[in-house]
């Protein structure tokens, strides 16, 4: 059943509605586990759309196996998704920097507070992101250092290739994940694929993990899918490769390819001058982030690599 989480009137004969679809077993009680899947916080990230669709479809296909409540929020930023706008159109606000929001606030802050209010009390929340239009990511779970101990056991169920335990930055305290984690809802941020595209393979990979996690929570009685064992790494093992010059980046290495230090990743070419600058791997490791959008300025992120020593563990 589709529920309205938040509704605000826009200036001319339109409502901005944030909706969720709830799927639940025939009988439920106060101890029935509840899983939330949210996506579409950034309007240019669409990978979660397929996950939402396919999750609902599979749940409806086997209602007899469902023993928990599954709430799916496919578009936290509906205006952004409709207009290919990363932030909230009209204000250029990053929706993921206004949490926990404010009941007495303006449109975005109010919507954020309603989202939090609706999710609070869930057993687990999965927040699906899709990088941005510039970078392609292998399916990974990102958790902050302060939540790692609690979240890694859940993250390992999600069938992702990599769990990145990152430093806790003050600015990230305005995210949905931080808000929910601080209010007792274990919330896992999944990053996968690239902005403005849907990668079905990644969606199916994450879906296996979601059903596995649902089984663990007691929300799904179907056979739990086998999941891959993720690499768990901290910031210290992640190497960032930023553009040393401007131009168009043309990759030669494959995403998630194992590379040796000095292997060529790609080239930054200048179509005006005919010059090219080769880009080499700074470490032995796995290429887990690869630039998708060619135009680069000095500093644009080209790739992130996971050092091999960590892979060997």
């Amino acid at each position: 059943m589709i529920h309205q989480v938040s509704c605000v009137n826009l200036p001319v004969d339109e409502q901005m509605r944030i909706q969720k679809v709830r799927t639940m077993p025939e009988t439920s009680g106060p101890n029935t586990p509840r899983l939330c899947v949210v996506t579409g916080t950034h309007g240019d990230e669409l990978e979660g759309q397929y996950v939402c669709y396919e999750l609902t479809r599979r749940l409806r296909e086997h209602p007899e196996l469902l023993t928990g409540i599954v709430d799916i929020y496919p578009a936290l930023n509906p205006l952004g998704i409709d207009s290919i706008t990363r932030g909230v159109p009209g204000f250029d606000l990053d929706m993921n920097r206004v949490f926990p929001g404010n009941q007495d606030g303006a449109l975005t802050e109010y919507a954020a507070s309603e989202i939090v209010r609706d999710i609070e009390g869930a057993d687990v929340c999965i927040d699906v992101h899709a990088s941005n239009i510039f970078l392609r990511e292998i399916p990974q779970v990102r958790v902050s250092e302060i939540t790692a101990k609690k979240l890694i056991p859940y993250a390992k169920e999600l069938n992702c290739d990599f769990i990145w335990v990152h430093a806790s930055a003050t600015v990230l305290q305005s995210t949905l994940a931080h808000t929910l984690n601080s209010r007792g809802v274990p919330t896992l941020v999944v990053e996968m694929g690239v902005g403005m595209r849907i990668t079905r393979e990644y969606g199916d990979q994450l879906l296996a993990g979601i059903f596995r996690l649902m089984h663990k929570l007691g929300a799904w009685q179907g056979e739990p899918p086998e999941v891959r064992k993720p690499i768990v790494s901290t910031d210290g093992r992640v190497a960032f490769l930023n553009a040393p010059t401007l131009g168009m980046f043309v990759p030669t290495a494959m995403h998630w390819e194992r590379l040796h230090k000095g292997d060529k990743i790609g080239e930054i070419i200048n179509p005006l001058t005919g010059e090219g600058v080769p880009i080499f791997s700074p470490v032995d490791g796995l290429l887990f982030t690869l630039r998708e959008y060619p135009l680069v300025y000095e500093g644009s992120l080209l790739a992130r690599m996971l050092a091999t020593e960590e892979v060997a563990k």
């Binding site: 605000v8 200036p11 001319v12 009209g90 449109l107 109010y110």
Partner: peptide, 8 residues
Amino acid sequence: PLVSERAV
């Protein structure tokens, strides 16, 4: 010239 509900 336009305003959304709840806008400051």
